[in-house]
Amino acid sequence: MEGKKIRVLIAKPGLDGHDRGAKVVARGLRDAGMEVIYTGLRQTPEEIVKSAIQEDVDIIGLSILSGAHMSVCKKVLELMDKYNFHVPIFVGGIIPPDDAEELMRMGIKAVFGPGTPIAEIVKKIEEVLGVKTNT
């Protein structure tokens, strides 16, 4: 129980109401020994970044199915610059391959489509953070 835990913010920006994927990921990361802060539906980029700051998370996961992934991610990255708070971001949802590439170029660390095994997400998070969960 001692020592550092990976803290993850799982947030759902935008207007769509499909949060099953976000919940499955949140639960899966919990089972991988991480502390997961779940902030629920319809979050603005400002709310997401402020929450990430206060919770001092190591990484942010954004679940986006509305098609607004480009503008949302751009805005979140801008706000991170504004507040001088930088942590890696991964995105899950329905993201066309071309957009996924563009997101990675913008600085998003990983994009996960439907059906991605939780183990793969855990592995990627550990790789990005350069740590190993203590489970």
Partner: peptide, 22 residues
Amino acid sequence: PSSPFTGGALLGDRIRMKRHFT
């Protein structure tokens, strides 16, 4: 609560306090 088995946790209180996020 943290899991006694994995040490992980789902922290879900913040979700009720959205109007204060900003």
